[in-house]
Structure formats: structure tokens, C-alpha cells
């Protein structure tokens, strides 16, 4: 239970899709001019992530990982005995993940259209856009590289990453609605200022970094496994800056 809660908050705040990894930036920048549309796209992202991450988890566990095919001849528990123990299909993961995502998005679109036309009207236009949203594929790839252990955790991870993305896009949309009345230097208007605001928000979100580690211990292992260049210095810095933030 505890690990579920930890993963939940970590995916929303510490490993926020937008602010820590810049995933889904294209639609984040393009569809954040109004809060109402941002809410629609955010909800669609939560939905698709919640569906595709666990699905891809099963694909990863039962087809892609080295030795994952062992269940074919009944040796799921003891993969080393299986005739399929040496098979490693992990190079296929990109193509399988993206195929799952594209199919699911299409399927979800059909189902929603059939059963809830009102939801379809509010989500519908965003769904095709989502198939090529980096946050969705990123969710599945991070799930794979962090070796999330159970299907329930994968479900949790998909759902909470979606919420993190939702928060980010709604926040920036609200800020952009207000900033329209501000006197921004002309060359910065629109895209430029949005970039800089996002950067400032990301700095704010970094202060959540010490939330789960107490600001002292080494960060949880899964995070350290990802991109060494970008993430590692970030963690060190987070830990240095966290006590300051707390004392304020």
C-alpha cells in the first residue's frame, strides 16, 4: 500500500511528465491557450495513459523481456528451464508499444463515440492528437526502464503520470489566459514567454524533490536509472536546495 502511495505522489509531483522530463511538450504548448480545452486534453491524456501503461506492462512481461516467453511451454515460474529462455525480443518494444497506443486510441475513440456522445464531443477532437503525444509513449517506456513490478503499480503509474500532466497543462493555460493582459516585450509574446514561465514552474516543482526522501537520503533507485546526464545533477541539486525551501 505504502509503495502505491509513494509512486502516486512521486509521479505527480517529483517526476512530473512536463516539468521533469518535458514529455508531451508539443500539445502542451499548442493546446494551452484556454483552460477549457486544456482540461479536455488533460482528461484524455489521463484516460489513455491509464489504459495503455498497464497494457504495455503485460506486453513487456509476457513477450518482450529476455526470457519472458517462458509461459509458452508452461515454465513461467522457472524461466531457465524453458525452451524459450534465450529469446530476447526487447528490441521490438518501440514498435509494439506504439502499435498498442495507436490501436487503443482508435478503439477508445470508437467506444466513447458510441456510448457517450457528450464525452466524445468534449474529448473527441483531442483523441487522435494523443496517439503522437510523447507523454503517452514516454509513460510506457519509463514503465519499462524503471522495471515496475506489478500490474497494479503500472496502472497506478499511468494514472498518476496522467494527473501530473493534467495539472501542468491546466496551470499553464490559466497563466496564459491572465498573461494576455500583461505588457510582455513584443518578441517574447506567445511562445517565448510560455517557455520561460514553464521553466519557472519547473523550478517550483523541483522543490517537491525532497518530499519523499526527506531531503537527506539518496533518491529512490528507479529514478537514478534513467537519463544520467540530466536527472542525476538534478537530484543532487534538489537535495541541496530542499532545506532552504522548507525553512522559508
Amino acid at each position: 500500500m505504502l509503495e502505491h502511495i509513494e509512486l502516486f505522489f512521486k509521479s505527480i509531483f517529483v517526476d512530473n511528465m512536463v516539468f521533469a522530463y518535458f514529455l508531451g511538450m508539443c500539445s502542451y504548448l499548442a493546446v494551452s491557450k484556454k483552460v477549457s480545452t486544456a482540461v479536455g486534453l488533460g482528461a484524455a491524456v489521463i484516460f489513455v495513459l491509464t489504459v495503455t501503461v498497464p497494457l504495455n506492462w503485460f506486453l513487456d512481461q509476457y513477450i518482450l523481456q529476455p526470457g519472458a516467453l517462458a509461459w509458452l511451454d508452461g515454465n513461467r515460474e522457472t524461466p531457465e528451464l524453458s525452451a524459450y529462455a534465450d529469446y530476447d525480443l526487447s528490441f521490438l518494444s518501440f514498435i509494439l508499444f506504439i502499435a498498442t497506443i495507436a490501436t487503443m486510441v482508435q478503439l477508445v475513440e470508437i467506444i466513447v463515440e458510441k456510448f457517450s456522445p457528450s464525452l466524445y464531443n468534449s474529448l473527441g477532437i483531442f483523441l487522435p492528437l494523443i496517439a503522437v503525444n510523447c507523454a503517452i509513449l514516454g509513460g510506457s517506456l519509463f514503465m519499462q526502464s524503471r522495471e515496475i513490478e506489478t500490474a497494479a503499480l503500472a496502472l497506478n503509474y499511468g494514472f498518476s503520470s496522467g494527473i501530473g500532466w493534467f495539472l501542468a497543462i491546466v496551470a499553464i493555460a490559466a497563466i496564459r489566459e491572465k498573461i494576455r493582459y500583461s505588457n510582455v516585450p513584443a518578441p517574447l509574446r506567445g511562445l517565448g514567454i510560455t517557455f520561460i514561465i514553464t521553466g519557472l514552474m519547473a523550478i517550483g516543482f523541483m522543490s517537491f524533490g525532497g518530499m519523499l526522501t526527506g531531503g537527506e537520503d539518496a533518491p529512490p533507485a528507479p529514478q537514478a536509472q534513467t537519463s544520467q546526464t540530466t536527472i542525476q545533477p538534478a537530484i543532487e541539486k534538489e537535495i541541496e536546495t530542499t532545506p532552504l525551501v522548507v525553512s522559508e
Binding site: 516539468f19 518578441p187 517574447l188 517557455f195 520561460i196 523541483m206 540530466t230 541539486k237
Partner: peptide, 23 residues
């Protein structure tokens, strides 16, 4: 400037590039 290696600075650097280009 240890701040430059943190993720948020990438956004701000791109913001500045846009600023320069559009000016």
C-alpha cells in the same frame, strides 16, 4: 552555474533563443 544543468534551464535557454531570433 550549477543551475544550467538542471532541466528547467533548458526551457529558459530556448525561451531566450526565441527572444533573440524574434527581436
Amino acid at each position: 552555474n550549477g543551475f544550467m544543468v538542471l532541466p528547467p534551464m533548458a526551457l529558459i535557454v530556448v525561451g531566450i533563443i526565441i527572444w533573440v531570433q524574434r527581436s
